[in-house]
Amino acid sequence: MIRSFVEDFAFDPAVVQLNHASFGAPTRAALTWHDAVRRAAEADTSTSLGTGLQDDLRRVGAVVAGLIGADPADVAIVTASTEASGALSTSLPLGAGDVVVLTDGEYESVIRAWQVRAEAVGATVLRLPLPVPATSAAVTDLFTALPARTRYVVLSSITSSTALRMPVAAVARLAADAGAALVVDAAHSVGHEPLDVSTLGAAAVYGSLHKWLPVPRPLGFLWVDRALVDVVRPAAVALHLDEPLLQRFGWRGTWDPAPVRGLERALDEWRTWDDGGRLDAAAALADRADQLLTDLGWVPTGEPAMRPARLRGFVVPAPLPVLREALAAAGVRLWTGTVPDGRTAVRLATHVYTEDADLHRLAATARSLPTPLTSPTDRRRGEHFAPS
């Protein structure tokens, strides 16, 4: 019998956790070690937050570079994807008349960061309508006629709210053909699906590390093409703004480096799960969730090829307030919101602690929702993306 991993995490046992993709889920062991590292740092802050921190940043920066197929000289450690996105949107060259293109399915803070920069310099942000349910071909087609003076295309490797694995390579080729640079939001990649920045054709890639690795939050990375290493700066002006990339982001004011120091331990724990088949088992549970929820009328947000290993999105035939009330009453936690056109949506994430009973409680909650009247078009949407 495979043991339960639930007790390895600090969860409320009464709650079904299907939303670690929003904030991460460190293990009890990681939290204990994190607290010990923080206490130890207080014994000599001059070293632990000074020269000692720089040594740790260089070591961990090299580890992160190895994870993403990068040269350590091109990698910075950041708190999370939002910090990296802010750094890129404020420091990459952008002028009056330039265009930044992204879909309306990108993370809202990313969209807003580029809008603020564009407003300041007289550029334009073009939001392309993401089709949901999506196919790779339909998403790629959005980028086939980029407007003149497109400077940047911003695209997630895996979208956040809609949980779609995006056709990054195909979009990269179209961006290059238009003379534009590709910026990739890889917040949901490391620890979840393979990421090799050298193969993407991107100018910059960033992501969070605390979402899919068992490291206490916050922790993330930023990679930039060698040509941009001297261009990209933190959004906050700090003491070592003109140092090499790693130090530039490592000296951004006083901050808690304990998550950085815990990354290697988190990777050891993650590899134990991987070697033991636990991550594959979690992916199989995500496939079972597809079957259970599709049978109940929930529509997957994308075709099978676009569904990430352990992250799945659905359009739900119920009003959002009704859905949220039912989930809260059932003690089920998953992301809820809307797809860009306003329809109710959910996103669930499976992990090493997820069990069949969790999915059955979610399915029971889905069955309790009032059944809406559906049009033939709505029914066809569901039939088009039956589980593979």
Rank of each mutant, 00 (worst) to 15 (best):
A305Q: 13
A305T: 15
M306A: 14
P308S: 03
A309G: 06
A309R: 12
L311C: 04
L311H: 08
L311P: 00
L311R: 06
R312Q: 10
R312K: 08
G313I: 06
V316Q: 05
P317M: 13
A318W: 08
P319L: 06
P319N: 07
L320V: 05
P321N: 09
P321E: 07
P321T: 01
P321C: 04
V322C: 05
V322N: 04
V322E: 12
L323Y: 09
L323Q: 03
R324L: 01
R324K: 10
E325V: 09
A326G: 08
L327F: 05
L327Y: 10
A328T: 15
A328D: 15
A328H: 10
A328S: 12
A329Y: 03
A330S: 15
A330M: 02
G331P: 08
V332H: 03
W335S: 10
W335P: 00
T336N: 00
G337Q: 12
G337L: 14
G337R: 12
G337W: 14
T338Y: 11
T338I: 09
T338D: 07
T338H: 15
V339T: 10
V339W: 14
P340L: 13
D341W: 15
D341E: 15
D341K: 11
G342Q: 12
R343P: 01
R343H: 07
R343F: 06
R343I: 04
R343W: 11
T344E: 08
A345K: 05
V346Y: 02
V346L: 14
V346R: 07
R347Y: 00
L348S: 04
A349T: 14
A349H: 02
T350H: 01
H351A: 14
H351S: 11
H351D: 11
V352S: 02
V352G: 01
Y353N: 00
Y353W: 09
Y353S: 03
Y353C: 03
T354C: 02
T354P: 02
E355I: 05
D356K: 00
D356N: 02
D356T: 11
A357C: 00
A357V: 10
D358N: 12
L359C: 11
L359E: 05
H360K: 00
H360S: 00
H360A: 03
R361I: 13
R361T: 15
R361C: 07
L362W: 09
L362P: 10
A363T: 08
A363Q: 11
A364D: 15
T365S: 10
A366F: 14
A366V: 15
R367L: 10
R367I: 03
S368C: 02
S368G: 13
L369M: 05
L369C: 09
P370T: 14
P370G: 13
P370V: 13
P370H: 06
P372D: 14
T374S: 05
T374R: 14
S375D: 06
P376L: 13
T377D: 12
T377R: 13
D378R: 12
R379E: 14
